[in-house]
């Protein structure tokens, strides 16, 4: 399946829902969208990977780039990733220690709410 991207706002969070395959061919579109969101002022970004069927190292590179970009701008990036299949990729690359990973968008918004205080 091709890459699909859709953005919505939940409270002050920007949720980017990603679906399909994120690989060396499609990852540039994901990067483009993330750059646009940050340039448009989004500072609490949640990337929902629940509907991602395939994610490779190129996709991981783009997510790391988004994390750095947001941190530089004083923002945060959270990832929603419930599949064991995808979690394994984050574990193998040790990126599970780098990203804030959540089971659901609700869990991510609750955890990254400024009122709730932040651990990182």
């Amino acid at each position: 399946m091709e890459l699909s991207l859709s953005t919505r706002t939940v409270d002050h969070h920007t949720v980017l829902e990603v679906g399909g395959e994120v690989d060396v061919y499609t990852a540039p579109r994901l990067r483009e969208r993330l750059v646009e969101l940050v340039e448009a002022g989004a500072r609490s970004v949640i990337v929902d990977l629940s509907r991602v069927e395939f994610l490779d190292s190129t996709g991981l590179g783009v997510l790391v780039g988004a994390l750095k970009r947001l941190r530089a701008a004083g923002g945060t990036l959270a990832l929603v990733c419930g599949h064991e299949r995808l979690l394994k990729i984050f574990r193998i690359t040790a990126l599970d220690r780098v990203f804030a990973l959540y089971d659901s968008v609700e869990a991510a918004t609750a955890a990254t709410d400024p009122d709730a205080g932040q651990s990182a």
Binding site: S57, G65, R71, A72, I92
Partner: peptide
């Protein structure tokens, strides 16, 4: 962290490292 670094290049380097790790 550089605000205006060659980000796409940096991401490629990250991807290469991650690819080998995978």
């Amino acid at each position: 962290v550089t605000a205006e670094g060659p980000e796409a290049l940096a991401e490629e380097a990250v991807a290469a490292t991650m690819g080998l790790a995978l």
